[in-house]
């Protein structure tokens, strides 16, 4: 294998790795937002707090995707 091909392969594998890392957080964010919308619909008077909590939940769930993102750059 030539060095160029090895480089290209490394990049492609990193890309796949990032894609895999993004799957879990994607599902997680979907669940967080869905439940937040349910909470807001059930208790509209608490919508502000639900929204803040939703953003926090998204932010924490996102962490794994962000680690994947960093690894993609490092690889």
């Amino acid at each position: 294998m030539t060095p160029e091909a090895a480089d290209a392969l490394k990049g492609a594998i990193a890309l796949v790795g990032y894609g895999l890392a993004a799957v879990g957080p994607g599902i997680g964010i979907g669940i967080v937002v869905g439940n937040a919308i349910q909470a807001m619909a059930r208790q509209p008077e608490m919508a502000g707090q639900s929204r803040t909590t939703m953003f926090l939940g998204i932010a924490f769930t996102e962490a794994l995707a962000l680690i994947g993102f960093v690894l993609f750059f490092i690889a």
């Binding site: 932010a59 962000l66 680690i67 960093v70």
Partner: peptide, 13 residues
């Protein structure tokens, strides 16, 4: 470790 890292990387990314 992860708090400062993700905080910075989230915005950056």
């Amino acid at each position: 470790l992860l708090r400062p890292l993700t905080l910075a990387v989230r915005l950056f990314a």
